[in-house]
Design a protein around this nucleic acid. Structure first.
Lengths: 210, 210, 210, 210
DNA sequence: CATGAATGAGTCTTCATTCAT
DNA sequence: GATGAATGAAGACTCATTCAT
């Protein structure tokens, strides 16, 4: 691989980085190629040396964004061993994301959902398929919960359903935080989410009052 | 007598209805006026007899959408008396929404969030302020939970935080359902959400296993 | 002729009247059919019962306007007998026009000139041909001046040229008055124009210092 | 070095030039952006690389037009010393304008007047204020005539009024020429205007025959 | 007759993409 | 390779005209 090649790769990453920021801040449908170019500190035409269309940039930015998020989660999950720790790790991934990434950057999630929901561009499905991603997310959490049930830590809940609910809480909290940073005390919320969810699926001595 | 006025009102509602559908299906930023007109079965210019701009249609559609959702919730909440019933009512509102409204129509939620998060249009803030709406939602749920705590049904949780988490679950589930109708068994999920959440904030005989 | 017929004529005149006002005030290219209808106190569609197109209204309004102006001139000229009186009559027509007609209404002159200069609509040439109108104006004045020369009151000027100059003065003054009512003292200007023009073409005892 | 900048400036001038021609020929309110682009031999979109709106083009074209006219006058006036020469210089400016500039181009005067009279666009008032321009024109001529009076060449006329009349003659002649090139023998008319106006305000041995 | 709701051709303006330098 | 000037397809909006009531 020649140094030129490396340079090209590096430059492409730089553009992608700038594009992701810009898209996240203004919204994918609103951002203009000029703005991405300006944000990347390059000429408008140069972008087309690295990407063939705005759509492709969008796809690449989304993929990169997802990768970032998944990296955070993978890192956290990697260290966790017990089901409880793993649940905690997923919640902490959310905390970490809000710490590591800029508030603006995380707004890209909305566009990711929008794209997944409307699938306006079938091409993008090849790069990232939100339906599939969520299916896999639920599988991961399901495995964790199943482990907990088998270990006698969690009660015998509908695993797939509970997994969806758990992931839903995190997504929903992200929305509230994106809508209003100040309205969500991340640390406190993370702890409470962990506590209530754990208690929610905990084995019960006596069947309660519900 | 004012048959003309009635007609005008009716027609405006029709257009709004069609606009809401079209916007929800394709996305607020993607829909074209021509498409709305076509969906409403009228000429492009006619739209402007009833709305002064695309922006105004957005606002009206968003407001109508919100109203629909809130009506469903209000109706459900109205009948509920105990805190548990009220929590159940909110969950049921979600179920009802997915039953009453078309899958496509509910996609508008994404645009509502997107608008709230990026506030690309300051005018819309006058019509609906997502930040405020969520603040108020949390207040409503907080009151319910507080009642439950006072009644000795719920344990002494961080009320505001838990409220956010609860609403987050519902929103997150909506996302998953919007992404993939088949992946979420609404009825089962609603029940499970109720059970786990109730148990999650229930009073505990002994401080548990966490 | 049935009374209906009369009504139609009357109504047409009313519309024309309103159209003339509106066009003059806002400009022929700027005025909208709706505004004319509103000004006439009738429905938009009704206009098309009396005129077949905006263009036709324009033509009719112009014709009416010209007629008004010409009536004023004709009336003044009618009473005048000597060449001097006739020149004075034409100047007085201008004074009378600024008195009789609204400042706004006289703005139509600009559109008349614009139409004449650009002849954007060949059809209008049939209704009024500015080129011809000015030719005839000059003829009228030329005849007056020629009379004066023959009578030994005016010196032997280039009659056609002087006529053009005289009419030009009046038109140019109208422009200044239209641009800024306050900047032109009509009465004083009329007198001065008469004096200087009369002296300008007067027979001279000695050939002067020029 | 900035060849790019120079090119941009040059191109902008070219567009402006073409725009001025097109606007003058067809009328400011009638000309379409497409036509200007076509006249400039460029694409429609390119116009907007140099001007931000149709309105801005109007303003720039008007300003350039006025500048042209004023340059001609300034040059002529510069060489003139006596009041008579100065009056002649102004008349000659008109002659020069009709020689230098295309018949079509000078039609822009009509739009200038129309704009001044109706002030449909308040923004344009910042660029050129016809009311003010005419006020200043009259001031210039007034100074000349006052000089002539003081020098004992002109009689004691109402200076401001006479100035208006003089300028009116020139404007009015321009209208006639614009309406019909052939109907006005510019050279002869210029001479006659000079003669009659000079005699019109000349000192008189005896108070004459009027 | 009178009306004004409906219409779509026509206009200004934007912006992703191209391409000559 | 990098650039940004040029472009025209596309989109929001206007308005003269039509026509059903």
């Amino acid at each position: 691989m020649s140094p030129k090649r490396v340079d090209k790769e590096v430059r492409k990453k730089e553009i992608l980085h700038a594009a992701m920021h810009a898209m996240a801040r203004k919204g994918v449908n609103v951002i203009k190629i000029d703005q991405i170019a300006a944000a990347a500190g390059i000429g408008k035409g140069t972008i087309y040396e690295y990407f063939s269309s705005k759509e492709e940039i969008f796809g690449a930015a989304m993929a990169q964004f997802l990768e970032k998020i998944e990296n955070i989660q993978a890192k956290k999950l990697f260290r966790a061993t017990t089901p409880q720790e793993k649940i905690k790790a997923i919640i902490d991934s959310w905390v970490e994301a809000t710490n590591t990434m800029a508030h603006d950057d995380l707004k890209l999630l909305i566009d990711l959902w929008a794209e997944g929901i409307r699938q306006s561009n079938p091409e993008l499905k090849k790069i990232f398929d939100m339906k599939k991603i969520y299916y896999e997310y639920r599988e991961i959490v399901s495995a964790i919960i199943r482990d907990g049930i088998n270990a006698g830590v969690f009660r015998d809940v509908e695993v797939e359903v509970v997994s969806g609910i758990f992931l839903a809480s995190v997504d929903g909290l992200m929305i509230q935080w994106l809508l209003d940073k100040e309205s969500v005390d991340i640390r406190k919320t993370a702890n409470t989410l962990y506590d209530t969810f754990m208690q929610g699926i905990a084995l019960q001595r006596e069947s309660g009052n519900l």
